[in-house]
Design a protein around this nucleic acid. Structure first.
Ligand code: FES
Ligand code: FES
Lengths: 141, 141
DNA sequence: TTTGTAAAAGATATGCGGGTCCTTTATTAG
DNA sequence: CTAATAAAGGACCCGCATATCTTTTACAAA
């Protein structure tokens, strides 16, 4: 479904939303440590996200990653789109060259139901909103 | 979601169910040709399926692949299990080490809803049954 | 029994996502 | 201004899914 890069990206963004509050910045070290993912690889993903304006960063002492006001409004969908591209939700689950309702594969309608549901979630949940749910309902990231 | 091997496996099984009727056998050549997948690789997947008793084969002239009576009863779920292993439907969509409802990731419940639907489909649809739907509703495989 | 045919098996290549390392650049505290 | 710090950027490596090729084995028809 999601590539590893994309999973890391989402989890990192959520971690920042929950923990990088009040102007605090968080470094790759802590991030990689808390998410339990390989540090150098996470760094790559993070800078890719910065380039895509999904998260923000400052260099130097007391620097690190954080979410600007704009970044809080970023949706999970934007992250997926930016990292994995648009095909995750539009390609046929059986790998057929085209996914269409007029000549569907046998799993098409069931797969679409699933994907549409998830898609909706991704589309309308901003990082900032999710952060609150996460702390409130003590979810894992 | 599914690996390429698994996609090929499912499509091949369905093709056999639809076309290898009345004791006819179908060779790798035709199969690869019709499904538009790489022939030598498909051959590997097919023999893997034979070993797993998901499909049947005979060597020699007029030989090829087909579905025995037992094979008709095989479900898509068995194919997925045999090719991709059990993790496809039980692992966390964000890659967390465990997927559980008690400490869920933010996408857990939405993802589960989707997956359960698909899972049901895979679990209760036997190849033989699907074959009829496919011809009747002119679906693509 | 012979011969042609087609799958089985094994060894081998390739591409890419995933992962690491090293150097450069920017920032800020002192 | 300087030194310490942390991200950015570039080059590189590795394993595995994917894909290919060659040889061997089994079967069936004649
Ligand atoms: S055609 Fe296969 S999922 Fe739509
Ligand atoms: S915990 Fe992530 S999908 Fe269940």
């Amino acid at each position: 479904m999601f590539s590893k890069s994309c999973q890391y990206a989402i989890r990192a963004a959520l971690y920042l939303a929950v923990h990088a509050v009040d102007g605090a910045r968080i470094g790759v070290r802590e991030l990689a440590d808390k998410l339990e993912v390989p540090q150098p690889f996470l760094a790559k993903v993070l800078q890719q996200m910065v380039r895509g304006h999904l998260i923000s960063s400052v260099k130097g002492p007391r620097g690190g990653f954080f979410l600007s006001e704009r970044n809080q409004e970023v949706t999970l969908k934007q992250i997926v789109l930016s990292i994995d591209g648009p095909d995750a939700f539009t390609s046929c689950i059986l790998g057929l060259p085209v996914c269409s309702g007029t000549h569907p594969c046998p799993l098409h309608f069931q797969a679409m139901a699933y994907r549409e549901g998830l898609n909706y979630q991704l589309k309308y949940q901003a990082i900032g909103d999710l952060a609150q749910r996460i702390s409130r309902e003590e979810m894992n990231i």
